[in-house]
Amino acid sequence: MGELWAGIREAVQLILSGDREVREIALRTVYVSGLATFLAMLTGIPAGYALARRRFPGRTLVLGAVNTGMGMPPVVVGLVVWLLLVRSGPLGGLELIYTREAMVLAQFLIATPLVIGFTAAAVQALPPELPELLQVLGAGPVRRLWLLAREARLGLLAAVMAGFGGVVSEVGASMAVGGNLQGETRVLTTAIVTETSRGNTERALALGLILLGLAFAVNLVLTRAQQRSG
């Protein structure tokens, strides 16, 4: 219990003191996980919509794969991306291994099935006649998509929250493809592992509390948007 309070005290001190390294790690975390989530939204929301609305051979198989992907261990994703990007791998020539871009790629692959799955569920919950109703009323394809997204916004924001929550808290993939390089690819989760292994439990706990605070702040903004629109 003493360590917990010490950790909380140190977290507050770290935040108030504006520790440069901690600030950089936190900003890097927001950048990597935020960009990965944004890219997952760009691809996952249209894919989830298509999966919910269209009927095609193998659809059940794809849905099953997406649902499996929603629970995929990040460390496995990290391993696959590492095998692809490592210098001897098929994409080694891109020289992306142990960079922030590699971390974004791995986190994008973790977040996308979550966004697709939640989007598909949100769209499937809409009345099936809604797209045709909007079509008959004269809405063009873009307007229809916008109105449908607005109608499914509770579920779509849940998709974004799930995606961001899934990647901001993962450590395995970031460690594998980012390498936890100080000043380069160290993010809050990998920093926590490092500090814990060094025996700096108060500092690790402090970073953990900052991570929690960050995740809470982002989700609070999204939840406010979700509830206001509901």
Binding site: P127, E129, L130, E132, L133, V136, G138, L147, E151
Partner: peptide, 17 residues
């Protein structure tokens, strides 16, 4: 012609929020 000339009440009354 349908987009401006037709009005369609579906069997199930569907509305947006």
């Amino acid at each position: 012609a349908a987009r401006r000339a037709v009005s369609y009440a579906f069997q199930r009354a569907v509305f947006l929020r």
